[in-house]
Design a protein around this nucleic acid. Structure first.
Lengths: 340, 340
DNA sequence: TTGTAGGCGTTATCAA
DNA sequence: TTGATAACGCCTACAA
């Protein structure tokens, strides 16, 4: 393995000059710099990142904290997308990503690797992905004296740097979309208000109705995030024997898909009997029949913007807002119809 | 930041002794060791991994190579599972994972980060995940003088260390299962033989038929891996106007789900008219109606076994086979019926 | 069983 | 604009 010293010797310069040249310092003569860099290339020189990191007193290591339960149980491709955004962006920088799973508050090492073994001290910053309990976050914040950015925590914790999707705005937009199509009886199937995402969605939903002086029909908020949940929601709504709405807004696409399936099983037609709009825009959403109209969430961007933000905070060059909100847009497909 | 030197001073021992104690060497007295370790804990000492790695002349860094196209386009939760297996297992070791995306052979840096910037020389080993083109692999192998393990490459490249699911066996088992239920007319909907996974599945499928002196009915092999593909397959089979089988084996669950949907749309009943067995056992597979019988693939294990194998190769302690084949098993659900 | 001292490959501080 | 030289924090002969 060629090292910087070899390059320096071949170039007849000192180690120091070679080092400066490689880091493109203005302190060194352009011609010398050019010569050294060319030589480095020829010799196949690559810096040893461990030596660099040691000398620079910086780990260039970012911890990506994931809730191990969500991560390993979820069937949600959303994780893959957000993580993809993080690691793709990281690849363009000098930073490495180390994954760390955190578990239950009751367990011996709630914070996982980040909290003990490797120690927080070996990271320059932390990204926490998805909803995290308050206690866990506080435990971490107390222990870590390094920057933390929350990604997709749905706007909990006002004082902590965060990147979020505009859940509220998305829900508002979706509901407004149904209203603009002429729907006056609109139902909700989704997460409860106790879930941060549910809270945002329900507020957006209700605000949109309010702004048009409407009230919700059929409000089912006992869902989790899967298809099965949507089915149960639809079932419950049918069983309740109340007046049925003409359209539904659902917290996510899986719920919408499950609900539609259940309605179809009962002989209803989509969108003739019920219009549906979801949120996420999963790959499957365009493949179901009829294809689902939804609010597209930029998942990769969540991860990408999150790590960019963290890195600039680490480098003391961040001067934006504590919260970054990513906008979203409606993808029109075939589950919503205009009514008079 | 407390460093080892601080610990050593407090303990009234030399740096060397402290170092030996921390790495649990037998060279140092049990009592001294105990004292040092306790003190380290008290002082909140954590080793600086960069210094460690530099001194040990080892990067403890493993490169996980992913095909950027598959990774970012696939809706397949399978990626998340396998990667989850890798990083979860890595968390238990001293090794870090660095992701690297490779792209087209035509592009400037086909090998991505692993090939240029950071350089292969900063890795102790490489895991290549999923199918990779021969040329790309050879490019990499030529450049890298470090261990490489292929994960889920479906048994291409006989000379390279690999961990694979038993695709052939799974397909054989699935087909045999249908035969044992009394089916004599069995169809295939899935990947073509030109795809490594298709190749394995088709051989397993045909072998099982052969062993029972049967021939395939309705063979559609123009699928990709998504739901839509399955729909098209079913459509094609219906259009072909040939004699229809009583059961289908599909390369994966998405294809099976798509095909079933299409058949249902045409008024057929599952499993009354057609039995179906898929492969993978996705979360969605148990949520569709009727829930899908399938061959469960241990995705997390693929990643976990893969990195374990790589690490022992790195440490010269591997003495197993070049190929590791993980077995799988049938999950019986509601899409297969017995016929007489 | 413990300590001394040199080295891992870079960067950074001075002085030249 | 360049060059010596001392860090960075840890590991590991070798000596004691």
């Amino acid at each position: 393995m060629t090292k910087l010293k070899d390059v320096a010797e071949k170039a007849n310069v000192s180690l120091a000059t070679a080092s400066l040249a490689m880091s493109n310092s203005t302190l060194v003569n352009e011609r010398t710099k050019e010569k050294i860099r060319l030589l480095a290339e020829e010799l196949g020189y690559y810096p040893n990142i461990n030596a660099q990191r040691l000398a620079r007193r910086k780990s260039y290591n970012i911890c990506l904290m994931l809730n191990s339960k969500y991560f390993f149980k979820s069937s949600n491709i959303y994780y893959l997308r957000v993580i993809g955004g993080v690691i793709k962006e990281a690849e363009r920088t000098e930073y490495s990503i180390t994954f760390s799973f955190y578990g239950d508050l009751e367990s011996k090492n709630p914070l996982g690797r980040a909290g003990s073994d490797l120690s927080i001290k070996n990271f320059d910053g932390i990204i926490i992905f998805d909803v995290i309990e308050r206690e866990m976050l506080e435990l971490l914040l107390k222990k870590a004296d390094i920057p933390v950015v929350l990604v997709d925590n749905h706007g909990n914790y006002p004082d902590v740097y965060a990147v979020d999707n505009d859940d509220f705005g998305g829900a508002y937009k979706a509901t407004k979309y149904l209203i603009d199509l002429g729907h006056k009886k609109i139902g909700y199937i989704g997460l409860p208000e106790t879930h941060p995402l549910g809270r945002e969605c329900i507020s957006g939903f209700k605000k949109a109705l309010n702004d048009s002086s409407l009230k919700e029909f059929a409000f089912y908020d006992k869902c989790k995030l899967g298809i099965r949940s949507g089915k149960i929601g639809a079932q419950e709504i049918l069983d309740s024997n109340k007046h049925l709405p003409s359209a539904f807004f659902c917290t996510n696409d899986f719920i919408a898909i499950g609900a539609m399936e259940e309605f179809k099983r009962h002989g209803f037609l989509i969108p003739q009997d019920f219009s549906f709009i979801g949120m996420d825009d999963m790959d499957i959403s365009s493949e179901v029949e009829p294809s689902l109209t939804t609010v597209k969430i930029e998942m990769e961007a969540l991860g990408q913007v999150g790590i960019k933000k963290l890195i600039s905070i680490i480098n003391d060059s961040y001067d934006g807002d504590i919260k970054t909100i990513l906008s979203n847009q409606i993808i029109e497909r075939d589950t919503c119809r205009r009514i008079n």
